[in-house]
């Protein structure tokens, strides 16, 4: 059942992105930035966690979860270490995604010759 909801919620977020491309005529970069900020705000209100419980990867795979994870890290360390946690905690959870993307992309650039 969680697969169905992952499909519907994840597809729905992508559909919103497509509407921002086609209807609002935003560039991909503007769309992604807007979605990340939206994810951060939704988590700030406290609605992203219920969405993850409900839709699983449908909520964690789209880029909105990046904003959610940034806020999560900041708030967790804010509660634990006080005000400095906002700065130190932001990349706490997203480290996996960013580090993996940097490392794999760099290795790919070393190993692969671009086509064309």
């Amino acid at each position: 059942m969680i697969y169905l909801w992952a499909f519907i919620v994840g597809g729905g977020i992508c559909l919103i992105g497509q509407l921002m491309f086609d209807v609002a005529k935003l560039t991909p970069a503007h769309t992604m930035a807007t979605l990340v900020v939206a994810g951060a705000i939704v988590d700030g209100i406290g609605w992203y966690d219920p969405l993850i419980k409900f839709a699983g990867a449908g909520a964690t795979v789209p880029i909105t979860s990046f904003g959610n994870a940034l806020v999560h890290g900041a708030i967790t360390e804010l509660n634990r270490d006080g005000w400095i946690g906002i700065i130190t905690g932001i990349f706490d959870i997203t480290s996996a995604g960013i580090s993996a993307a940097i490392i794999f992309s760099f290795l790919a650039a070393l190993a692969v010759r671009p086509k064309g």
Binding site: C14, G17, T31, M32, P62, I63, A101
Partner: peptide, 8 residues
């Protein structure tokens, strides 16, 4: 583009 795979 929207999933994290598009970011990578």
């Amino acid at each position: 583009a929207v999933p994290v795979t598009g970011f990578a």
